[in-house]
Amino acid sequence: MEANGEETNPGFDPNKNYDEDTLAQQREIEKEIAAAQSMVSQLYTFDEIVEEYSQEDAIYRQKVEDLKTRFKNLRKTRGDGNCFYRAFGFAYLEILLSNAKEYKRFFDVAQKSKDELIGLGFPQFTLEDFHDTFMDVVKMVEKPGTVDALLNAFNDGGLSDYFVVYLRLLVSGHLQQNADLYIYFIDGERTVKEFCSQEVEPMGKESDHIHIVSLTKALQVPICVEYMDREGDKCNSFTFNPFEGSADTTDPTPVFTLLYRPGHYDILYPL
């Protein structure tokens, strides 16, 4: 086949599908990450991870020292673009293991969410599949659930990824339900729905502030994030309070804390 003369790169064939090569390469990288990192790790002490965390910078080393004054352990999550959801899911359910009252509240919210999402136009057939698995995992923290069983579930792709998908759908649903509010926080000429189909629903898409705000509001769970960046010599902590600005007087004390290093979320455990 002769090209039309506009060609500048002799190796480039405009009718060849290069997307597949790119996708294949991407999958290879994902496989390497999957082989090297568990989806949710065991507990680590800061001394065990300080080298890894401070590779980039001496500032990070100083910040690990700061964390040690307030936190005892951390769990690492896999860096596959789903880390925020997985960290959120695991940290929260782990707390619910020993909080029956909050479990009851969450169970009802989770149960009800299915019909809300279907009402928003998500396809019932596939949504049910994710919701069923999601609820199976949620029920694991009903008595007498154990952290080990939960950890196993979060390292089982079939359960863990389905759980993440459902959290993504909850975020998408919340954003779409409150589109008139969130439209101002979306960059590019995109509708909220477009944003959701590009940046929320596909697996592996990383989370920004807007995703966190949205998930904490959808589930009414206040959380804290410790930001470990290059500014200052201590981590900046930020509380996401879903009740702010509403008449709700629920206690906004964060239920758990995540650690953010640029591009990644892990779970922190207080002293």
Partner: peptide, 18 residues
Amino acid sequence: YADGSICLDILQNRWSPT
């Protein structure tokens, strides 16, 4: 494409598990 593969966003970066 010539090999039959399809350029469609939902089969690539806009895929939703639903």
